[in-house]
Design a protein around this nucleic acid. Structure first.
Lengths: 349, 349
DNA sequence: CACGAGGTGGAGAGCGCTCTCCGGTTCTGC
DNA sequence: GCAGAACCGGAGAGCGCTCTCCACCTCGTG
């Protein structure tokens, strides 16, 4: 249907549209970008010409001059040398956490016509790749989700002066925007609920101590319990995976057989804990109440998990919003957003 | 450390490197792209100049002339108007299926320095966006995962002459490359195993009838069972989600209380079926043997699921490989790859 | 020693777009 | 009725890169 122009090779360009519409390149550009006023009849002619030629602006040419790409990098950054030996990408994408973050990012970006470029950084080499990618002008900025607090990527980005927004507060203070959850407040919610429920012997399965969020959830929980008159809370360290929750639960019950309440630092570990409790013949929540964190895997558990909800999609969208603001205005100052969690009561506690 | 050049504004360009190295732009370009011979000492000088200037080639400028971007679109295409009302992106990214495909794609693309751009197409508008995106030259081709067989996107892509590779054979024949699993053979594997195990009353929980893969798994299973002397296999339709597996299992047991073997068209539904069987007090695998499909959620089930393994990561990598071949050589003919599944025996059957 | 072949670096023409000027036209106000 | 402002379209200079020519130089060969 776009064969009206007989002797044109390749994709139509602005020049072609201009010729068909009988105006100059500049005018077509103005119409397309809606910049300045253009007489209505000329606009009409240009639109018709675009229609007949099937013109689509060339992104490379455009971003060569505008210095904008309309793309952002969505980077998952962490260590690739896990014991499992499983490739980093497998672990990342298998994690429902990543899925929800991606969902929130895409939900915000898509209506704005911008798309995320998926990147993984799990080594010095790949971290440099991310920096190069941005410096090349392949994307306007980066949304970074680090799996470890000590991740060096954020600093590299800051040093290179590249727009970036982090998921979660970095372990060391860096002048960079981030979005995070009030983990301590969330953990306190869990503590309050367990105590209100009448639990007297409460323990916790923590996340890895080198993850700031895990630290906060642990200390927040311990503090809140102390406030309720329980200065000592047995704790075991997990790795946020179901198996570690299961193992942790077994250990806790072995060392403290009279436990009647458990707070797991995420739903996956809570799910593992549930499995362990069933194996041990303990009823949930009657014998042991269980509370998770994140509200990620909560409904697929048996019984459905009471959990501290982390609105990941909203937080991810907020990251995207901050990044775009930063890209649009280089003087945009570093801003951090702390989101409040809520307790979702289901059956496990 | 790159302040050696006092009066340079913005990022260093080829020109800057050339000046520092005392050669021409063309020579620097040749060194960077490794094209033609350049005298060793000059190469050395150029590399040093790149080092001191901190030069990174501008991607837009490069792709403007090469007509290559070094990016591919990873498109999830489906219907956005689900009953759930949940946004499309949430459902897509929550699905471990997508995670594994993404993992395979990234695993293949990353070592080659190319990155996938995440796109969702769930309406006529967004499908056009994908086509425009490619026509703009924002990506060199598309990897398309359709959630429904009748998805119109593949045809749009073919009509526009854009390089694309599909996950799974499209419902209507289209001249486009795809990678698919031998679903019927996989279902037969499940049938053989159930029969060999001694199951006499076998039923199946199918996927949505409008998904070609679900049809194939169903008919492949029925055919294989017929071959084993079981011409009639009770079947209920699910939607690949755990809840539908649970409901389906309840229905099957109600209508056929003596069932001793079940084949679910994916692991998620098998997981639901397991839940239902526990609620009903049936032991797995002693009373009822259960086989899933995909090997996606199999290990987190209780008991661990015997399942038909679909090597999704390998298949996704194969898609990427085909796409790059097609991008590199426009005359590359349409190729389809059919992957053979294997049976993974765990505890549930 | 002359001449052609082969190898190597430079000059310069674009790739398709945006955006700053500039010149011409139409309004406005006194 | 005219100066000045406001408006609007065109010309043209790049954005940073690749790549085709072309010029030059060094050999090898008859």
């Amino acid at each position: 249907m776009s064969t009206d122009l007989p002797h044109m090779s390749g994709a139509p360009t602005l020049e072609d549209v201009a010729r068909v519409a009988g105006v100059s390149r500049a005018t077509v550009s103005r119409v397309i970008n809606g910049i300045r006023n253009v007489a209505p009849d000329i606009q009409e002619a240009v639109h018709r010409a675009i229609e007949t030629t099937g013109y689509v602006p060339n992104r490379a040419a455009r971003s060569l001059v505008t210095r904008r790409t309309g793309a952002v990098a969505l980077v998952v950054s962490g260590a690739g040398d896990a014991e499992g030996g499983e490739p980093f990408e497998s672990r990342v994408f298998a994690d429902p956490f990543f899925g929800r973050v991606a969902s929130g990012v895409v939900g915000y970006l898509r209506p704005r016509g911008i798309h995320p470029v998926l990147m993984l950084a799990d080594s010095a080499q790949t971290r440099d790749d991310v920096v190069s990618f941005l410096r090349q002008g392949s994307a306007d900025g980066a949304l970074v989700v680090s799996t470890h607090g000590e991740d060096p990527l954020p600093k590299l980005l800051v040093d290179a002066g590249l727009p970036a927004v982090l998921w979660a507060r970095p372990a060391r203070p860096i002048p960079i925007s981030y979005v995070d959850l009030a983990h301590r407040a969330g953990a306190a919610l869990a503590a309050d609920h367990l105590v209100a429920r009448g639990c007297r012997r409460v323990a916790t399965i923590s996340g890895p101590f080198d993850v700031p969020a895990a630290q906060d959830r642990l200390s927040g929980f311990q503090e809140a319990m102390a406030g309720h008159g329980h200065p000592y809370v047995p704790a075991v360290e997990g790795d946020f995976m179901p198996a570690s929750g299961e193992a942790g639960m077994h250990r806790l019950i072995k060392e403290h057989p009279d436990i009647d309440g458990v707070f797991a630092a995420n739903d996956l570990m809570a799910q593992g804990a549930l499995l362990a409790l069933r194996d041990l013949g303990r009823r949930v929540p009657d014998d042991v109440a269980v509370i998770g964190f994140d509200d990620s895997a909560a409904v697929t558990c048996r019984p459905p998990l009471t959990t501290v909800r982390q609105p990941m999609e909203d937080m991810a969208a907020e990251m995207a919003r901050l990044l775009l603001a930063q890209v649009a205005d280089p003087d945009f100052r570093v801003t951090s957003v702390i989101v409040q969690p809520t307790l979702v009561v289901r059956e496990s506690a």
